[in-house]
Nucleic acid binder design. Structure first.
Length: 805
RNA sequence: GCCGGUGUGGCGGAACUGGCAGACGCACGGGACUUAAAAUCCCGGGACCGUAUCGUCGUGCGGGUUCGAGCCCCGCCACCGGCACCA
C-alpha cells in the first residue's frame, strides 16, 4: 500500500478534533506545562510558511511533554484588530468584523491542516467583545491607578496612514507599516506610564530564562543610566536643570544647549528676555518642520542659534556661559537641556568648533585641540578646582556630594524608555472606555457597562483631520456622565493593536470567564507561561508591553506572578529561495497549502524543522523538501507490514537507544534539525538491519511529535495500544548506548596518521601501546626520538617526535 | 557610530564546547531493477596529484596560545538584525 498522506492526515485530524485529544484541563494530578506561541494576525493573505516555524517548534515540544505525562496547555487565538483589516474593509466597503471573521476562518482551516495539537476550545479572538471587554477593564484599572493619562504632546504622525504612531512603530523616521513620512504633530493622546515600571522591567530580567540577545535588546531599549541633575542659574533668574552622566566634567562646561521645544525658551520669549527673538523663533519653526528622519539624517552638521540676552551661570566656576538652541538636544530625554563639555563629548566639540566656543580640557590624556577626548573613564582631573588630581571614578561621587550639599544638584537615574502612546485615531480597535464630561473631566466608565462595543456601521471613511472615524458617529459618541448624569461624550480614540496581545496568554487559562479577565484559580494553577517562543521583532514591543501589563495585573492581585513568561526563545525567519525576505512584491512567497497538497503536512512540518538552525534565518528550497518526503516514504515502507518481536532487537538496540537520547535532548535544546538527522540515521540503520516491532514502536514514538499523522497511522497498523501521541515517551538506557570498542585517532606531531581500535575505557598505557603497535605509526618512528605522548581517553593518542641526534 | 549575531563542500547545514572537520539531507556521478523512463534499492563524492596506497592543502583574512584550534586570545574584512545626536 502506498503512503496516502492526504487520506491519513484528514483521518487523524478528524479523530483528534472529535476526541479532543489535545484539550487541557484546569487541574489534576499531572504536572502542568504551558507552551505558547505568538498568536497570528489573521491577514487576508492567509498563512505563509513563516508561521509554521515557531508553531511546529512548540507543537513538538508540547507533544513531547504530553507524552512525558504533563497536563499541557498549548493554545491558539487571533490578534485581529489592526490597520490592514480596516484598510481592506474601507477599500471594499465591507465591515471589518466580517473581514476578520472570514480571515479567521481561513487561518483556522490552514492551522488545522498542519495538525497542530492546539486546544481549540480555548481559542480567543481579540476583536470579540467578550474578549475586549477585559482589555477595556484592564485599561480602566490602569486609569484608576494613574497609569493611563491624557496629555498633549508632539506625536509621530504618519502622513500616509493619517494616524499617530508609537515611537516603536517609527522605523528610520518612516512609518513601519506603510513607509510613509512621519512628522511631529501636537496632539492630545492617551498614554500608559510604562516608565513607572522601567526599573522593575529591567531588574526582573534577571529572574527569567530568556535567550541572552532578547535580554540585551530589552536592556538597551530600557536604557538605564546613572548620573546627576545639575541646576544652572541664569541671568534671567530662572533655574536651568540639566542631566549628565559625567558631572565630574562640570568645570569644562563652557556653554549650554537646550532643545528648541524647551519650555524655558517660551517663557523667556514671553518675558521679553531674549534680544534676538526672531532668530530664536525661526530656528524653533525650522526644527518643528523637520521630521525625525530629517533631523537624524543631517547627523553630521550641527545647527543652532545662540539665545542672546540670557546667560547661564556655571555653578562650580561661577562664570557666565552662553546658551544655545540646537536640535541635537532632544526634548524627550533627560531634562531637555545639557551642559556642553566640548573637551570630552564629540557632539559638543563639533558644535563648539562650528560656533567658535572655548574648549577646556578637564580630564588628562587626550588632545582636545584635535578632537574631544571621550575615552576618559579612567583619566585624572585637571583644570577642575577641588577635583584636580582625582581619578574620574572618585571625581564623580565627590562632585555629586558637593552638589547635593550645596543644593545645586542630585544623583539621578534616567531611562531611554518613554511612556507608551496608547491612542489611535482608528475604528478597528478597542474603544477606550473613558467618558469626557464638560463638568467632571475624564471619567471612567462603570465596569458593569463593559464592553463598550464598537458601533455597528455599514461603512465609513477615515478622516483627514486626524480624528477617529468614531468621532463622526454622533449617536455613539453622545452619552451621559456616570458621575454627574449630565450630557457627555465617549472618547473616540481606540487602543493600538498591542493592547489585546498584552494579556491574551492569561485568557487562554480561563477563556469563558465572565467575571474576570482570568479567574484566580485558573491563574494560580497555570502560573507562568513555561515556554514562549516568538519573533525577535517583538522584543521591544509586544514582549515588553505584555511584561508591563502583567506586572500591573500582579500588583492589583489578578495574577500570582510578577513575570508572565518563564522561558523565551526566538526563531529565525524563513527566507525565499534566493536568501531574500519572502514578500508579495518579490513573488517568492511559499503558500503552505501547495506544499501540503504535494507532499502532506507531515513533510512540511519535517522540512521546516530540518531546514536549519531554528534560531537562524534559513532559505527555502523546493528541492530539499523532497528529502523529507522520501524519509517518510522510507518510514512507511518499513512499518506498513506486520512485524514481529515486541522487544527492542539486539542488533539495533544501541542505535535505538542512541536515537532516544539524541532526539530527547535535541528537542529540549530546539535542535530539531539534528533530531531529525538522528531519526533519518535510525531509519537508514533499519534498512540495513531489519527492525523488530519493538524497534518500530520506538521509532514511531520519536517521530510522533514531528510527523504526528503518519506516526499515528503506522501505530494503528502495527496494532499498538491507544494513540502514539498519548503513549509514554521512551526512556533510554545509557549503558546500551555505549560502544564496547572505540576507534581512536593516532596523531604524530598533531597530524592524524592512523587509527586504532581499543576497548572502551582503555587506560592511557593500553592506548599508547596500541598506538605504538600500529604498522603505520612504526614507520613514522624510525630514526626519531619520542619527546612526549598525550593520550585522551576514548579519543586519541598524540605522539610528539623529533629526529634522533 | 554603538549593541547583538553570523561566516565551514556545488547547496542547506553537522561537529558532544579544545581531540579523526564535513553527520543528516539536497543536487550530482556510478550500479541494480525495468523494453525504457520515473520511482525504489545499493555504492561514491572537500580540493589538488595520482589507477591506488601515500602525500599536500583545507572551516572569511592576518597573527597568537596549545601536543592539538572550526571552537580560545589579539587585530582586520564581509554580511544579517536591532538601536541610533540618549548628554
Amino acid at each position: 500500500m502506498k503512503y496516502d498522506f492526504t487520506a491519513i492526515e484528514k483521518k487523524w485530524q478528524k479523530y483528534w478534533e472529535e476526541h479532543k485529544t489535545y484539550a487541557a484541563e484546569n487541574g489534576g494530578d499531572k504536572p502542568k506545562f504551558y507552551g505558547l506561541i505568538e498568536f497570528p494576525y489573521p491577514s487576508g493573505e492567509g498563512l505563509h510558511v513563516g508561521h509554521p516555524r515557531p508553531y511546529t517548534a512548540l507543537d513538538i515540544v508540547t507533544r513531547k511533554r504530553r507524552m512525558q505525562g504533563y497536563n499541557v496547555l498549548f493554545p491558539i487565538g487571533y490578534d485581529a484588530f489592526g490597520l490592514p483589516t480596516e484598510r481592506y474593509a474601507i477599500k471594499n466597503h465591507m465591515r471589518p468584523e466580517d473581514v476578520t471573521r472570514r480571515n479567521v476562518k481561513r487561518f483556522t482551516q490552514q492551522l488545522k491542516m498542519l495538525g497542530y495539537g492546539f486546544d481549540w476550545d480555548r481559542c480567543v479572538v481579540t476583536t470579540d467583545p467578550e474578549y475586549y471587554r477585559w482589555t477595556q477593564w484592564i485599561f480602566l484599572q490602569m486609569f484608576k491607578k494613574g497609569l493611563a493619562y491624557k496629555t498633549s504632546m508632539p506625536v509621530n504622525w504618519c502622513t500616509d496612514c493619517k494616524i499617530v504612531l508609537a515611537n516603536e512603530e517609527v522605523v528610520n523616521g518612516v512609518c513601519e507599516r506603510c513607509g510613509g513620512q512621519v512628522v511631529k504633530k501636537e496632539k492630545s493622546q492617551w498614554m500608559l506610564a510604562i516608565t513607572k515600571y522601567a526599573q522593575r522591567l529591567l531588574d526582573d530580567l534577571d529572574t527569567v530564562d530568556y535567550i541572552e540577545r532578547v535580554k540585551t535588546q530589552q536592556r538597551n531599549w530600557i536604557g538605564r543610566s546613572t548620573g546627576a541633575e545639575v541646576d544652572f542659574g541664569t541671568t534671567a533668574g530662572d533655574k536651568l536643570t540639566v542631566y549628565t552622566t559625567r558631572c565630574d566634567t562640570l568645570f569644562g562646561a563652557t556653554y549650554m544647549v537646550v532643545a528648541p521645544e524647551h519650555a524655558i525658551v517660551e517663557k523667556w520669549l514671553r518675558d521679553g528676555r531674549i534680544t534676538n527673538p526672531d532668530q530664536v523663533r525661526a530656528y524653533q519653526q525650522e526644527a518643528a518642520r523637520k521630521s525625525d528622519f530629517e533631523r537624524t539624517e543631517l547627523e553630521k552638521e550641527k545647527t543652532g542659534v545662540e539665545v542672546l540676552g540670557v546667560r547661564a551661570i556655571n555653578p562650580v566656576t561661577g562664570g557666565e556661559i552662553p546658551i544655545f538652541l540646537s536640535d541635537y538636544v532632544l526634548a524627550s530625554y533627560g531634562t531637555g537641556a545639557i551642559m556642553a563639555v566640548p573637551g570630552h563629548d564629540q557632539r559638543d566639540w563639533d558644535f563648539a568648533k562650528a560656533f567658535g566656543l572655548p574648549i577646556v580640557e578637564v580630564v588628562q590624556g587626550g588632545d582636545v585641540t584635535q578632537q574631544a577626548y571621550t575615552d576618559c573613564d579612567t583619566g585624572v582631573m585637571i583644570n577642575s578646582g577641588f577635583l584636580n588630581g582625582l581619578p574620574v571614578e572618585q571625581a564623580i561621587p565627590t562632585m555629586i556630594r558637593w552638589l547635593t550639599e550645596k543644593g545645586l544638584g542630585r544623583e539621578k537615574v534616567n531611562f531611554k524608555l518613554r511612556d507608551w502612546v496608547f491612542s489611535r485615531q482608528r475604528y478597528w480597535g478597542e474603544p477606550i472606555p473613558i467618558i469626557h464630561c464638560p463638568r467632571c473631566g475624564w471619567v471612567p466608565m462603570d465596569e458593569k457597562d463593559l464592553p463598550l462595543r464598537l458601533p455597528d456601521v455599514e461603512s465609513y471613511e477615515p478622516t483627514d483631520t486626524g480624528e477617529s472615524p468614531l468621532a463622526a458617529m454622533e449617536d455613539w459618541v453622545k452619552c451621559t456622565c456616570p458621575k454627574c448624569g449630565g450630557p457627555a461624550e465617549h472618547e473616540t480614540d481606540t487602543m493600538p493593536n498591542w493592547a489585546g496581545s498584552s494579556w491574551y496568554f492569561l485568557r487562554y487559562m480561563d477563556p469563558h470567564n465572565d467575571q474576570a479577565p482570568v479567574g484566580k484559580e485558573a491563574a494560580d494553577y497555570w502560573g507562568q507561561v513555561d515556554w514562549y517562543n516568538g519573533g525577535m521583532e517583538h522584543t521591544t514591543l509586544h514582549l515588553l508591553y505584555s511584561r508591563f501589563w502583567h506586572k500591573f495585573l500582579y500588583d492589583i492581585g489578578v495574577v500570582p506572578t510578577s513575570e508572565p513568561y518563564h522561558k523565551r526563545t526566538s526563531h529565525g525567519m524563513i527566507l525565499g529561495a534566493g536568501g531574500e525576505k519572502m514578500s508579495k512584491s518579490r513573488g517568492n512567497v511559499i503558500n503552505p497549502n501547495d506544499i501540503v497538497d504535494m507532499y502532506g503536512a507531515d513533510t512540511l512540518r519535517l522540512y521546516i524543522r530540518f531546514i536549519g538552525d531554528f534560531e537562524k534565518a534559513a532559505p527555502w528550497s523546493d528541492e530539499a523538501v523532497k528529502g523529507c518526503k522520501r524519509f517518510l516514504d522510507r518510514v512507511w515502507n518499513l512499518a506498513e507490514t506486520p512485524l514481529t518481536g515486541d522487544a527492542c532487537s539486539a542488533e539495533n538496540e544501541k542505535e535505538v537507544h542512541r536515537a532516544i537520547q539524541k532526539v530527547s535532548r535535541d528537542i529540549e535544546e530546539m535542535k530539531f534539525n539534528t533530531a531529525i538527522a538522528a531519526l533519518m540515521a535510525l531509519v537508514n540503520r533499519f534498512y540495513a538491519s531489519r527492525p523488530s516491532r519493538g524497534d518500530i514502536r520506538i521509532l514511531l514514538q520519536l517521530l510522533s511529535p514531528f510527523a504526528p499523522h503518519i506516526a499515528e497511522e503506522l501505530w494503528q497498523i502495527q496494532g499498538f495500544e491507544g494513540l502514539a501521541c498519548q503513549s509514554a515517551w521512551p526512556e533510554f538506557d545509557e549503558s546500551k548506548t555505549l560502544d564496547a570498542e572505540k576507534t581512536i585517532a593516532v596523531q604524530v606531531n598533531g597530524k592524524l596518521r592512523s587509527t586504532v581500535v581499543v576497548p572502551a575505557d582503555s587506560g592511557e598505557e593500553a592506548m599508547k601501546q596500541a598506538a605504538f603497535a600500529d604498522r603505520k605509526i612504526a614507520g613514522y618512528m624510525e630514526g626519531m626520538d619520542v619527546v612526549k605522548v598525550i593520550a585522551v581517553k576514548d579519543k586519541l593518542v598524540n605522539i610528539i617526535l623529533k629526529p634522533k641526534k
